[in-house]
Amino acid sequence: MAARTSATTVAALLRQSIATCELRTILQIGTRPTAAAAATRAATSAISVNTTSRNPSHYRSLHTTPVWLKKKGREEKEHARARPAADSGNSNGSSTSGGGSSSQHPTPTPEEALDFADVHSRLTKLASHANESLKRLKAGGRFNPDLVGSVKVQPDRNESSVSYPIRELASVIPKGGRTISLLVHEAAYIKPIMSAVQAHRDFNQQPQRSPDNELELILKVEPEKREDLAKRVKAICHDWRERIRDVRQRRDKLHAAWKKDGSMLPDAKRKADTELDKVIKAEVAKVDAAEKDTMKAAESK
């Protein structure tokens, strides 16, 4: 009697399991499974239930288990904190304004906050470029063989990216007064040189062919007005000062980043800012002196 009751209970449980599997299948795919498929699913479900009861960790399905995140260790947190400062230094250094990329200049560190070797390096490069431009103006403005020789020429129109200064395609020779002779190395360069000089903002005239030499071009440079020369001097010095300010801002941002990440104390930052201000003021004074000297030379001509 007990055996019959047990068999009945098992059969009832089996029928209930099969019905549950059918209902689940209908809900998922909208079709009624075959009897064989239902029996197989019921057996699989029974095995899964038995396995789950032995191992409680399997109660969670794979797709609902959250990802376990490893906590950041102390070293990793410090590295993440230091990263913005390093990135700030790289972004500042990669900029071409303010004296070139950081790879061309010394790298500053918070341990040597009063070492402005990077600032001096950038300022030296700016001064060299600006003084060269002022030197050409002092030598005669547009009437300057060096200025004529630096005009870019494109020998081949089909290769617009290839250009050479006139000094590489011809000999630039001053002939007295405001006349410059261009002895072209090859006849093929004559027309490109004439076009380049005519298109240049400082000349805007076409060199004339020499009647005595087919490879010689004659350029007569018109005297530049003092007012125009003074404007060019002021423009060069204004740009020079602006680039010095860029150098100052670059280093200021670096000081702020060092203070933010804790690598520089507030007192040390104030002292570094004060010393940097002295360096910048001294450089601006050099610009003022160079501008005054160039203007004086221009007015005396």
Rank of each mutant, 00 (worst) to 15 (best):
P211K: 11
T274D: 12
L265A: 13
V184C: 09
A199C: 01
W240M: 09
R209K: 08
A187T: 09
G262Y: 13
D212K: 15
R248D: 03
R201Y: 02
H185V: 02
P192I: 02
L276N: 06
T179K: 15
E186N: 08
K234A: 14
S181F: 01
N213E: 12
D239P: 02
Y189N: 04
I244E: 00
L215S: 04
I190V: 15
M194P: 00
C237G: 01
E186V: 02
K259S: 07
Y189S: 02
Y189H: 11
K269E: 13
A256P: 00
P192V: 01
I193T: 01
R270C: 07
G177D: 06
S195I: 07
K271M: 10
Q205L: 15
K269V: 09
R245G: 06
A257D: 11
I236F: 04
V247C: 03
P211M: 12
S263A: 13
S210C: 12
P211Q: 13
E242Y: 05
C237K: 04
S181L: 08
C237E: 02
E216P: 07
V197L: 11
H255D: 03
E242C: 06
P207R: 01
R209T: 02
T179A: 14
R201W: 04
R232D: 11
F203Q: 00
R209L: 09
A272E: 00
A187D: 12
D228Y: 14
R248Q: 08
E186G: 01
A256K: 10
L265K: 15
L215Q: 07
H200T: 00
V221L: 10
Q208R: 07
L182V: 00
L183R: 15
L229R: 07
D252V: 06
D252E: 10
L182F: 01
A272Y: 02
L276K: 07
T179P: 04
A257G: 06
S263F: 12
R251A: 05
V197T: 00
K220D: 11
D239T: 06
R270E: 11
R232C: 08
R201C: 03
K231P: 04
R201P: 04
R226W: 10
R241G: 00
K191G: 02
A187L: 12
D273Y: 03
W240S: 03
S210K: 09
D273S: 05
G262M: 14
E216G: 06
N204E: 10
R245P: 00
E227I: 07
E275Q: 11
A235F: 12
S181H: 02
D273P: 00
K191W: 01
D228E: 15
D228L: 15
L254S: 03
K234H: 12
D267S: 12
R232W: 11
G177E: 06
R209A: 08
R250Y: 00
I190R: 13
Q208A: 09
K259G: 04
L254K: 04
V233I: 15
K220M: 14
A235Y: 12
K175R: 15
E224D: 08
N213C: 09
K259Y: 07
A268V: 11
D246T: 09
A187G: 05
Q206K: 15
R251Y: 06
D202C: 05
D267Q: 10
A268R: 09
K225P: 05
D228I: 14
I190Y: 10
R201E: 06
S210W: 09
A199K: 11
E227K: 14
Q249N: 13
S195K: 14
A272M: 06
W258F: 12
